[in-house]
């Protein structure tokens, strides 16, 4: 089942090809092409990494051990938490810089992302606390 699910990521490649065709041949506005290109990059990246991961697990037993190793999992969580803190600081810095430079819209976007962070944290904590 898990193996079959991994194969579904090949659909990501198909979606990428479709998006590429749309960008090349459809008469969309430039902003839509940029949006599609960003989506293409994201879908391709995720699909490729998932398929690579699946192949590595099958090919190399040590790879699975390394990934599932409980200390490595803890390192990943702690590093993620630390990176999140750094991101918050950088978003705050960017917001201040945008305000100083009088870039209202970027300041609002980064400010909203910054303000949303604690709300996401509370929501995620609530969901996780119900599971464990």
């Amino acid at each position: 089942m898990k193996r079959n699910r991994a194969k579904l990521w090949y659909l990501g490649y198909a979606a990428c090809a479709a998006m590429l065709l749309l960008i090349a041949f459809a008469d969309f506005p430039r902003s839509a092409d940029i949006g599609l290109a960003c989506a293409l990059g994201a879908v391709f990246g995720v699909s490729h990494v998932e398929l690579w991961y699946d192949k590595q697990v099958k090919k190399d037993e040590n790879f699975e051990i390394e990934v599932e190793d409980e200390r490595n999992v803890q390192i990943k969580y702690r590093a993620g938490f630390l990176a999140c803190g750094v991101d918050m600081f950088l978003f705050g810095l960017a917001t201040v810089v945008f305000i100083i430079m009088d870039y209202t819209l970027p300041a609002v976007v980064t400010g909203v992302m910054l303000a949303a962070q604690p709300l996401i944290l509370i929501a995620a904590s609530s969901v996780i606390s119900k599971r464990i």
Binding site: I65, R71, N72
Partner: peptide, 19 residues
């Protein structure tokens, strides 16, 4: 590490009390 299905680094960290 192989017998316990953990990384060698985990065994090292356990042995020296870091983990």
């Amino acid at each position: 590490a192989r017998a316990l299905r953990v990384s060698r680094q985990t065994i090292g960290s356990l042995e020296n009390g870091r983990y």
